[in-house]
Amino acid sequence: MNRRTALGLAAAATMTPVSQAVAPPDPTETIRLWPGAAPGGERVSVTAKVTERSTDPAFHDRFAQYTTDPILTVLRPTRPNGASLLLIPGGGYRWAVVDKEGMDCARVFAAAGVTCFVLRYRLPGDGWAAGADAPLQDAQRALRLIRARAAGDGLDPARIGVLGASAGGHLAGMLTARTDATYAPVDEADAASFRPDLSILLYPVATMADPFVHAGSRRELLGEAPTAEAISRYSLEQMDWSGWPPVFLVHAIDDGAVPVENSLQLLSALRAAGVPAEAHLFQEGGHGFAIRLIAGRPAAVWPQLALAWGARHGWITQV
């Protein structure tokens, strides 16, 4: 990453509502994940909606609920470097935020030349036949589509990363660690691998086990009284990570929603499995800080740290 890229990234990462009057426009390019209806929707009766929480015209703060037609929103950089990134926002598996951990983060990585795909995924409590694996079906399909389309998009199919935040970090972790395809192939794109080439996990919901579990995410994913087998199956630190690609962890020690032990336990599991891993723990930042909420604070450097780490692992090159 050269000096010009670093300066542009720093400017994007520190942007605050004071510095702009109107929120940047939404990208117009979207990709439907499924050629027809999403799998297993015979008993689904919800109606999709997106709610805006921001009252400030300088930024959006939307969340999507009851998604039935999952999509990728594409942000293409002015000067692409061949790397791509699947972004999976959080929301406790109750909804998926659109901006804070999606579009806002994507704009920062796009400024460094990375082509970004923001995932709007289905939620486990909406009646899908796959239940807890419905979000993972969407994540696997999304990664396969990005890889299958890479040559036509001018992207390197061997430089596709995933970035997941909070519950999206759990989903990104499952996408990275699990080897089982969660749906039957629907077209030629499903011949592609769904394994990312590296993973960036922001304050991830990693464990489903007490005492460090984020109870809301576990309830939405596994129900009120999950079995010990389900807890083990969906806890990232209990998965087999042997031979998997590099992982980058970011967490605030003062996170009151998803305890930092989620990342610490996962880091121990990654080290035991021999996975190249790097972790950055910040004294303060709370939960869900993403980009906008930490402008001017120490944790605001995490995108630069992630890009430098990605460069060391061959994900990005100088723009």
Rank of each mutant, 00 (worst) to 15 (best):
F109V: 02
F117I: 00
V46G: 08
L143R: 04
L145K: 00
G91R: 09
A130Q: 13
G41D: 14
L119D: 05
T78D: 14
A96H: 15
A150D: 03
V118H: 04
L87Y: 10
G91E: 12
A83P: 06
L75N: 06
R141V: 01
R147S: 02
G131H: 03
R43Q: 14
L143E: 06
R62Q: 04
K49V: 14
A158L: 05
M103C: 04
G113C: 03
P157L: 01
L72Q: 03
D56C: 03
P57R: 13
R43V: 00
G41L: 08
R122Q: 10
A111P: 04
P35I: 05
G91P: 08
L155E: 05
D133K: 06
V114L: 11
A151H: 07
W128I: 02
Q140A: 08
D99Q: 03
E101Y: 06
T67F: 10
R144S: 09
R43T: 09
N81W: 05
G40E: 09
A130T: 04
A148T: 00
G90W: 15
D133P: 00
V108S: 06
P57E: 11
C105N: 12
S54C: 05
F59I: 03
Q65M: 10
D104W: 06
V50W: 09
A112E: 09
R79H: 14
H60V: 00
A83H: 09
H60D: 11
A96W: 15
P70G: 13
R62H: 05
P157S: 01
D56Q: 03
R107C: 08
S84D: 02
V108F: 11
A106G: 10
I71A: 10
L123W: 15
S45T: 11
I88R: 02
I88P: 04
L119T: 04
T67M: 14
G41K: 06
T73D: 12
V114D: 10
N81Y: 12
W128H: 02
G125N: 14
C105I: 15
L85F: 05
P39G: 14
G41N: 14
Y66G: 07
V114C: 07
Q140T: 06
P70C: 10
A110I: 00
V44H: 14
A112D: 13
H60M: 06
S45P: 01
A151G: 05
D56H: 07
R122I: 09
L75D: 11
G40C: 10
N81S: 11
A111M: 08
